[in-house]
Structure formats: structure tokens, C-alpha cells
Computed example of a mutant assay.
Amino acid sequence: MKTETSIYQEIGESATVRRLVETFYGKVLKHPKLGHFFTKGIDEIIEKQFLFLTRYLGGPNLYPEDISPPALRTRHLEFEITKEVSDAWLECMGESVDEIGIDGETRAKMMEKFQAIAYHMVNKI
């Protein structure tokens, strides 16, 4: 019986997720629609994003259950997240995925998952 490979496994597991997150936040901090959200420091946010994406992409469950996607949205309600902000987030993520060399079907699957979570976070029309 063939076992399905997760996106996490396809991209090279932990080291690639770490590179993705670090590349992504380098872009986010410079983005005019996103940078202002990160005025209190970034190290803890980078680590939480690494833990979240590890699980979200099919890796080990390192991320606390109380910060799962439904709770994740609640934790972000203090920020005005519009579709425009989500699109900017996706732009940075897509550029980061490209920059670290993920392409083809794996890239498409990742971006589909990222789009789902980005639009789930929208809390203002």
C-alpha cells in the first residue's frame, strides 16, 4: 500500500519550513501593507509561524492546539485584516516559496493551503 507524502516531506521538512518562514518575514517586514503589524518584535512570531506551518503542511504536531486555525483567527481579531491585507500576505508567501526554490505541483498545493488560511483570517470587509 502506497503512503501519501505530505507537503512537509515533499519540500524537505523542517529545514525548508524554517527557510520559508525566515524568507517570508524578511518580505513581510518591508511590505507597506504588512510591516506595521509587527511593531513588538518578530522572533516569537517567526517561531510560532514555523511551528504552525510545520503542522499545517503535514509535519509533526509541534503547534499548541489552543492556537489552531479557529483560535488563530480569534487571536488576530485585534488587527484589521482585509482581503487586501490577505492578498499582500499571499504575495509575500508566494515570492518566498519561489525564492527558496519550490515549484510545480508542490508549489500549487502549498499556495492553495496558504490561500485558504489567508482568507480565513479576513475579519473586515
Rank of each mutant, 00 (worst) to 15 (best):
M1K: 07
M1G: 09
E4Y: 07
T5L: 10
S6A: 07
Q9D: 13
Q9A: 11
G12R: 03
E13C: 04
E13Q: 09
S14I: 04
S14W: 07
S14V: 05
R18Y: 05
R18H: 11
L20D: 00
V21C: 03
T23C: 06
T23E: 03
T23V: 02
Y25L: 01
G26D: 11
K27W: 03
K30S: 09
P32Q: 11
K33C: 00
K33I: 02
H36K: 14
F38L: 10
T39P: 03
K40D: 15
G41L: 09
G41V: 09
G41D: 11
I42G: 13
D43I: 11
D43Q: 15
D43E: 15
I45E: 15
E47Q: 14
E47F: 09
Q49T: 10
F50Y: 15
L51C: 04
L53C: 08
R55Y: 08
R55P: 01
Y56F: 15
Y56K: 08
L57W: 10
G58Y: 08
G58R: 06
P60V: 07
N61K: 12
L62W: 08
L62I: 08
Y63P: 01
P64R: 12
P64T: 08
E65S: 14
D66K: 13
S68W: 10
S68M: 11
P70K: 01
P70V: 04
L72W: 00
R73N: 01
T74C: 00
T74M: 00
T74Q: 00
R75N: 05
R75Y: 01
H76Q: 05
L77K: 13
L77E: 14
L77Q: 15
E78H: 10
F79E: 09
F79M: 14
E80P: 12
E80Q: 14
I81P: 01
I81S: 02
T82S: 15
K83N: 14
K83E: 14
E84C: 02
V85K: 07
S86Y: 11
D87G: 08
A88Q: 10
C92K: 08
G94W: 02
G94K: 04
G94F: 03
E95C: 06
E95F: 06
I100A: 00
I100D: 01
G101H: 02
D103I: 14
G104H: 14
G104A: 13
E105R: 12
E105V: 12
E105A: 15
E105M: 12
T106G: 12
R107C: 01
R107A: 06
A108P: 10
A108I: 12
A108W: 10
M110S: 07
M110Q: 07
M110D: 03
E112F: 07
K113V: 05
K113P: 03
F114E: 07
Q115D: 05
Q115H: 06
A118R: 06
A118P: 07
H120C: 01
H120L: 13
H120W: 05
V122R: 04
N123D: 03
K124A: 02
